[in-house]
Simulated scan of single mutants.
Amino acid sequence: MQNRKDEGDREMTATVYYDNDIDENVLRNKKIAVFGYGSQGHSQAQNLRDSGFQVAIGARPGKSWDKAVRDGFDVKSVKEAAEEADVMIMLLPDEKQPAVYYKEVEAGLKPGNAIAFAHGFNIHFKQIVPPDFVDVFMVAPKGPGHFCRREYLNGGGVPAFYAVQQDATGNAEKIALAWAKGLGAARAGVLKTTFKEETETDLFGEQAVLMGGMTHLIEAAFDTLVEAGYQPENAYFETCHEMKMLTDLIYENGLTGMRYSCSDTSKFGDFTVGPYIVDKGVKERMKKVLENIQSGKFARDWLLENKVGRPMFNALQEKENNSELERVGRELRKLMPFVKQGKKDSEDITANVAQ
């Protein structure tokens, strides 16, 4: 366990655990059930199994069930898996978890069981309220499932957050840390947080930067160049394609490291024009976004959207998937076969866009 000082920098406030800090034996003889076999489900199940734990999959008949069987898992209905498990994790989409929990999981819970999550949404916003006789914890890897699996196989790991919401057995924190170690996350570092903090910061990061902020900044820049008469292909490379190289540099060495690899001309534009684009008004709107998350407004809007059949979501997704930026990008990527390497879901992505 470390509260270390970064070289030449500030002392870290987060508590960070690594492999040597964690005794995984508390989880060694437990029966584990993973509900859902999508991106996170397949990654967590396979990493835990390869770490020597007993893992079964709870799923419904269909593609996920068949894939889990092909991958060599014991696959059961969610209800059966819940009844047999000691420790289980909900890795279904957020909006589907409550119905599955109350219909197929809750009745099978026994004193001493533990139920886990990879995102705090349903616990924090009280869409799922487990009984007081079970442990409730979270292990949230900070990366997509396929990336977590790849790093594990390469001998590394993806950092993760962990939190304990309910400690009925007195061992909830030890079990959560053992789970994180089984995923390979403790090779990189496991940070202690709370369900509230993880949920609110995760939603904010997605909306303000990683998804909402980034995608719409790219689209606005692309449209500005095209509307000014520049070739769409040129605009795509300048505003979208090169983003990957820069984010890789940021991932490796931070903003300073990224800027080190760029020209002084680009840095001067960064320092002087960046604050003009992302001005005080942007920060004020970000504060409003955060307020909507903290108050539960975003959660209520998303839950309502699902209840009425997702009319807004489906319309917006159709619009975004078929924008000029996306159409141009799909054609250009056909000319760059190297881009497709490692993209295991390319066929699924194409099929989803076509629907």
Rank of each mutant, 00 (worst) to 15 (best):
I218L: 15
W179G: 03
Y251I: 00
E252R: 10
G62I: 01
A235F: 05
T199K: 00
E84I: 02
E347A: 15
G342E: 06
I128W: 04
R10D: 08
S266P: 07
Y251L: 02
D167G: 10
P337A: 05
P93K: 06
Q97N: 15
T15N: 11
K287Y: 10
C262H: 07
S51E: 11
Q231N: 15
E320A: 06
N171C: 12
K5T: 08
A351K: 14
A235R: 05
V55S: 14
I57K: 10
D74M: 12
L225S: 12
T201P: 03
I57Y: 14
K283D: 14
K192G: 13
S266F: 14
L332R: 08
A118N: 10
G41K: 11
G213Q: 11
G229N: 14
G257Q: 10
Y18P: 06
L191S: 13
I250A: 11
V226G: 13
P159E: 12
S77H: 01
K287R: 14
G108E: 10
F53S: 03
N29W: 09
A186K: 01
L191K: 06
F222H: 11
V136C: 00
K126A: 10
M258D: 02
V16M: 02
K30W: 00
R4T: 03
V34I: 14
V328Y: 02
G274E: 06
L255V: 04
Y162V: 03
E84T: 00
K297V: 00
N321R: 11
V158N: 00
N234P: 03
R10N: 07
E198M: 02
A114W: 00
L255I: 04
R149A: 12
G257F: 02
K63L: 13
N20S: 12
Y236T: 04
V16H: 03
R187M: 08
M88Y: 02
N113F: 01
F73C: 07
Y102H: 12
G296S: 04
N321K: 13
K31I: 02
S346P: 00
L27S: 04
K340W: 13
M336L: 15
F73D: 01
D167N: 12
T193R: 08
E83C: 06
Y230E: 11
G157E: 03
A180F: 02
K76N: 09
K30M: 04
F137A: 03
G212A: 10
R300C: 06
E305S: 03
E242T: 04
R327Y: 09
E173A: 11
K126N: 09
M211P: 01
C262E: 12
P93E: 15
A178R: 01
Q207M: 13
E305P: 02
H216L: 09
C240T: 09
L183D: 11
N292Q: 00
L316Y: 05
K76A: 08
K319L: 10
A99G: 15
